[in-house]
Amino acid sequence: MGELKFFLRLQIKQLEDGTFTNQQKYIHDMLKKFVMENSKPMFTPMATNVKLTLEGEVDSFDSTKYRGMIGSLLYLTASRPDIMYSVCLCARFQENPKMSHVEAVKRIFRYLKGTMHLGLWYPKFTGVDIMCFTDSDHGGSLIDQKSTSGVCAFFRLCLTS
């Protein structure tokens, strides 16, 4: 069968010292699908001063298209944990998206355009080390005052979840 190179739109490159996974082709196809291939790249997935809320805007956006954009981004988080927070924040507004929500999603697309080459590196070595990191924001949501938390789990210095 040969060496594994693609699996469920995940590109896999096996080297002597480890394995590298990314979704560069998927990002390219996604940018083309949502007509963002000629957009200007960004260096961050979300601006620090952006506060997404439900109130304040009258203009709505097509929720079907917005859900498609969010679904594509959620699939991409398998190899791009750097966009997880931004995508999940934008996913909260799928029921009635406003133009500010769409602009936030487009910024994520522009960030991906500039960072297509990034992915996850899993080096080969011996030893079993498990590390976990957690962070939480109690009552920090501007919408419903709910808490937000996240966990990163590493096995042998490789991000697993």
Results as ranks from 00 to 15, higher is better:
Arg92Trp: 04
Val128Cys: 13
Pro81Asn: 09
Phe93Lys: 06
Thr77Glu: 03
Phe133Met: 11
Ile83Leu: 05
Ala91Thr: 08
Gln94Leu: 05
Ser100Tyr: 03
Cys90His: 07
Ser86Phe: 02
Arg80Cys: 01
Ile83Tyr: 05
Pro97Glu: 01
Glu103Ala: 14
Val87Trp: 03
Met99Phe: 10
Leu120Ile: 15
Met131Lys: 15
Ile83Met: 02
Pro123Lys: 09
Glu95Val: 12
Thr115His: 04
Trp121Gly: 01
Arg80Val: 01
Lys106Val: 03
Leu74Arg: 10
Gln94Thr: 14
Glu103Cys: 00
Ser100Gly: 01
Lys106Trp: 00
Pro81Gly: 09
Ser79Lys: 08
Thr115Leu: 04
Ile108Ser: 02
Tyr122Glu: 07
Tyr75Cys: 13
Lys106Cys: 10
Arg110Tyr: 00
Thr126His: 15
Phe93Pro: 03
Arg92His: 11
Phe133Thr: 09
Phe109Val: 04
Tyr75Asn: 13
Leu89Gln: 13
Lys113Trp: 04
Ile108Arg: 00
Leu89Tyr: 06
Thr115Asp: 01
Thr126Phe: 10
Tyr85Leu: 09
Ile108Val: 14
Glu103Met: 08
Glu103Ser: 08
Lys113Glu: 02
Gly119Tyr: 02
Arg107Gln: 11
Lys106Ser: 00
Pro123Ile: 04
Phe125Lys: 14
Ala78His: 15
Asn96Arg: 12
Arg80Gln: 05
Asp129Trp: 10
Phe125Thr: 04
Phe133Glu: 12
Leu112Arg: 10
Met131Phe: 12
Phe93Glu: 06
Ala78Tyr: 13
Leu89Phe: 03
Phe93Val: 06
Ser86Tyr: 01
Gly119Val: 02
Leu120Asn: 06
Phe133Pro: 12
Met84Gln: 06
Met131Gln: 15
Pro81Trp: 06
Leu112Ala: 09
Glu95Arg: 14
Phe125Cys: 05
Leu112Asn: 08
Gly114Tyr: 01
Arg92Tyr: 04
Phe125Leu: 07
Leu76Tyr: 05
His117Asn: 12
Ser86Asn: 11
Leu118Tyr: 13
Pro97Gly: 07
